[in-house]
């Protein structure tokens, strides 16, 4: 399954897919997309790297990748941003919007060209959910790959 054509195409294509996934995550409050969709795109780039390589190389490549830690970081970050809302009113209140902090700009009313420095907590939640989704989907496929390739390694 891992011919030279597939390996070369993957090496060219995977960075582009990863950049596109990051773009969808970061612009989740402006354009179609968001944390879930961008995380799925990012994970599909990593999955392309997984399925186009042989087992030993995949194991060496993903041994140092902290997928479990990234997933826990996503969940804890979501909870932390939610608790930040308790400063003003309630859980998950948009406390950063219009505060001048990073991503805390003021959104103009009506149709506008879209400014990246707006969104408040929504941008942070997008980033954390994207981290969580990409770690989760990649680790699901990685588990299947490592376990099912163990017996028929002659492919």
């Amino acid at each position: 399954m891992t011919t030279t054509i597939i390996k070369t195409t993957t090496r060219l294509l995977a960075p582009l897919i990863l950049v596109f996934g990051s773009y969808i995550i970061l612009h989740g409050h402006l354009t179609p997309g968001g944390g879930f969709q961008g995380g799925a795109v990012f994970a599909s780039g990593l999955i392309l790297l997984i399925v186009a390589n042989v087992r030993d190389k995949v194991q060496k490549l993903f041994e140092k990748t902290p997928l479990t830690q990234l997933e826990s970081l996503g969940a804890l970050g979501f909870l932390g941003i939610g608790l930040l809302g308790l400063m003003s009113y309630t859980f998950l209140k948009n406390a950063i919007a219009n505060s001048g902090f990073l991503f805390g700009g003021t959104t103009p009313q009506g149709i506008n060209p879209g400014y990246l420095n707006t969104g408040g907590t929504l941008s942070y939640l997008n980033i954390f959910v994207g981290t969580k989704v990409l770690a989760g989907l990649t680790s699901i496929v990685l588990i299947f790959f490592l376990i099912l390739r163990r017996e028929r390694d002659e492919w």
């Binding site: 989740g28 409050h29 402006l30 354009t31 179609p32 968001g34 944390g35 996503g74 969940a75 979501f78 909870l79 939610g82 859980f91 998950l92 948009n94 919007a97 219009n98 003021t106 959104t107 103009p108 009313q109 009506g110 506008n112 879209g114 707006t118 969104g119 408040g120 907590t121 929504l122 939640l125 997008n126 959910v129 969580k132």
Partner: peptide
């Protein structure tokens, strides 16, 4: 736009108005 401060209405529904739902989904 004034309550959730986002141009994308679907994102503001998912992460602001129905934030608990998204937490359960994660």
């Amino acid at each position: 736009q004034e309550e959730a401060s986002a141009n994308n209405v679907v994102t503001s529904v998912v992460f602001d108005y129905r934030g608990f739902d998204t937490l359960g989904e994660a």
